[in-house]
Nucleic acid binder design. Structure first.
Length: 237
DNA sequence: GATAATGTTAGCAT
DNA sequence: AATGCTAACATTAT
C-alpha cells in the first residue's frame, strides 16, 4: 500500500532531509526518486545510481505529508517541494549496486515473476528442515512472516513441526499457492486496517474447525511463536 | 504497568 | 574461517 501511496513522489527531487541515522542521507539532496520497488519486506526507493533500502522491522511506519501522532522520534524525513515522507522505527541502508544484481525477484511471493518451482527446488535441498523454519526463510519465500506462517499452515492443515522432506509434493503445492493467496489477502486487510480480525489461528485460543484448544509454542531455529491444532493439522515426520 | 510480539542484524564469543 | 548467540531497536495491545 505504501508503494502505491508514494507514487506521487516518483520523479520528485529531495529538497531537504532530517536524518537521525548514521547514513549519509545528504547524498539524496537534489536527487530525484526514479522508482519505488519492493522485494519481500524490503521497501526500495531508487535514485539514479543508488537505492535507499528500508526495512520496517516489527514496528516501522511511513507517514506521508504528516507526522505520526503522538510525536515520536523520526528516523528519516525526506522533504520535497510539495510534500514529505517520514520514516519511523526502520532499518535503513543504501544499496550501491544495480538492484537486479542484489535481488532475485523470483523469490518474492508477491512478485510478478514469483517462481514456485525454484522454491520447490530449494525445499528439496533441505529435507530435514522444519516447515515452520522453511516458510520464514526469506531466500525462499521473501515477504512471508510469522503470522502468515501460522495462518497458511492452518489453512493447509500442516503442523509447524513437520519436516520439509516428509510433506507430499501435492501438499507443498497447496502451501505455495496458499502463501500467495494469503499475501494478497493480507495486503487488502491491512489497507482496510482490519488484518487482525481475519486471523484464524494466530493468537487465537480455540480451533474454529473442531473447537480444540490451539497449541502455542515457540518453534524452530528462531523460536518463533506458533499456534496449531493437533486434531486437524497433520504432522508429517 | 508489565509483558509480549508482525523482524533483522551488528557485534561479540566460540 | 565459520558458526552461533545476544542485545538492540522501539510501539502497542492486552
Amino acid at each position: 500500500m505504501w508503494k502505491e501511496d508514494i507514487q506521487p513522489f516518483v520523479g520528485k527531487k529531495v529538497m531537504a532531509v532530517e536524518n537521525n541515522t548514521k547514513l549519509d542521507a545528504d547524498r539524496m539532496l537534489n536527487k530525484s526518486i526514479t522508482k519505488v520497488k519492493t522485494w519481500g519486506k524490503h521497501f526500495l526507493i531508487c535514485f539514479d545510481d543508488f537505492t535507499l533500502r528500508i526495512h520496517f522491522l516489527m514496528f516501522g511506519d511511513l507517514y506521508i505529508n504528516r507526522r505520526k501522532p503522538p510525536e515520536k522520534p523520526i528516523k528519516l524525513s525526506m522533504q520535497f517541494a510539495d510534500g514529505e515522507l517520514v520514516l519511523y522505527n526502520c532499518a535503513l541502508r543504501f544499496i550501491e549496486e544495480p538492484l537486479d544484481e542484489v535481488y532475485d525477484w523470483s523469490t518474492d511471493v508477491m512478485s510478478e515473476v514469483w517462481n514456485p518451482k525454484a522454491a520447490m527446488e530449494k525445499l528439496k535441498a533441505i529435507p530435514d528442515a522444519l516447515v515452520c523454519d522453511a516458510l520464514l526463510n526469506q531466500d525462499i519465500f521473501s515477504g512471508v512472516g510469522n503470522i502468515m506462517k501460522n495462518e497458511v499452515l492452518f489453512r493447509t492443515c500442516v503442523q509447524p513441526l513437520s519436516m520439509v522432506g516428509k510433506i507430499p509434493l501435492k501438499k507443498w503445492e497447496e502451501i505455495l499457492s496458499e502463501l500467495v493467496i494469503y499475501s494478497y489477502q493480507f495486503l487488502e486487510w491491512r489497507k482496510a486496517g482490519e488484518f487482525q480480525r481475519h486471523w484464524e489461528v494466530n493468537a487465537r485460543k480455540l480451533c474454529p474447525r473442531d473447537k480444540a484448544p490451539f497449541i502455542k509454542a515457540y518453534l524452530g531455529v528462531d523460536q518463533r511463536r506458533s499456534y496449531y491444532c493437533t486434531l486437524c493439522q497433520v504432522l508429517y515426520q
